[in-house]
């Protein structure tokens, strides 16, 4: 997927900011915090995972998403968000 497609979605940017601020979160929690329904949130998360920016960890019935520590893209996105927040 091209970069403009990944970042052109407001919910996706909200998800990335949220995970950058709070660390690992489960799907329902993310949906509630960005005020979106579960299935749409889930689709956005899957896309971000497929792009290698987020990664999923499964604990029994709970799925938690966080930045993929091994992905250079994830590191770049985290840096971008951090710089952005600091220079608002």
């Amino acid at each position: 997927m091209e970069i403009e497609e990944v970042f052109s979605s407001k919910p996706r940017m909200k998800i990335l900011r949220l995970v950058a601020r709070l660390g690992a979160l489960n799907v329902s929690d993310i949906a509630r915090r960005i005020n979106l329904n579960y299935s749409t949130t889930n689709q956005h998360l899957k896309l971000l995972e497929a792009e290698g920016i987020l990664q999923q960890r499964v604990y029994g019935r709970v799925r938690m998403y966080r930045f993929n520590d091994r992905s250079p893209k994830a590191i770049a996105v985290q840096n971008l968000i951090e710089t952005w927040e600091q220079n608002k």
Partner: peptide, 22 residues
């Protein structure tokens, strides 16, 4: 270890497994 882990929707056994996994 997982500050935002959900507060419900799983059993004590699952909590223990989660703890071990973490």
């Amino acid at each position: 270890f997982r500050p935002n882990f959900p507060k419900r929707g799983y059993s004590a056994e699952e909590a223990l497994e989660t703890l071990m996994q973490s």
